[in-house]
């Protein structure tokens, strides 16, 4: 066996181990993006899975307990599928009624325990005028996202 072949074989071994590392790490640390409907109907199926879902913040549902640093709120979609969310942390920026909220975390007995809560507003990054905030546009945006899934 020539030296070149040997070196190539060793190289393949390195590459193979990286691939194995990838394949083994992927399922353990991946999560799924699901809709609120799925979260309601197939809750059991997603037990112990790291999930991402989003919906509109339901007006008046925010319950913020500063002493325990606990945040509770409800999100819903157009078909009135609701999901109660619990988050140990503070309100994210722009946390006002009817904004789209993205939550990451685990679904436990119908309650979503969010590790991370974000708000989405396309105006944040492209410098749109906040006065132009158009509820209809946001609803359409969410609908489009739903359709893509």
């Amino acid at each position: 066996m020539s030296k070149n072949t040997k070196v190539i074989l060793a190289g393949c071994a390195i590459f193979l181990s990286i691939i194995i590392l990838l394949v083994t790490a992927t399922p353990a640390s991946s999560g799924s993006e699901i809709s609120l409907l799925e979260a309601r109907v197939n809750a059991d199926q997603y037990k112990d899975r790291y999930l991402t879902t989003e919906g509109f913040l339901q007006p008046g549902s925010v319950d913020w307990n500063p002493d325990k640093v606990e945040l509770r709120f409800t999100i819903e979609d157009d078909e009135n599928n609701q999901l109660q969310v619990f988050h140990h942390g503070v309100k994210p920026d722009n946390f006002s009624d009817d904004v789209i909220v993205i939550v990451h975390g685990y679904l436990k007995d119908g309650l979503f325990e969010a590790e991370r809560v974000q708000t989405r507003c396309p105006s944040v990054y492209e410098g749109e005028d906040p006065d132009d905030y158009d509820e209809e546009f946001h609803r359409n945006l969410l609908r489009e996202n739903k359709d893509e899934e």
Partner: peptide
């Protein structure tokens, strides 16, 4: 389905 891999991955 959109499967996300996060920081842990």
């Amino acid at each position: 389905t959109k499967v996300t891999v996060g920081i842990p991955f």
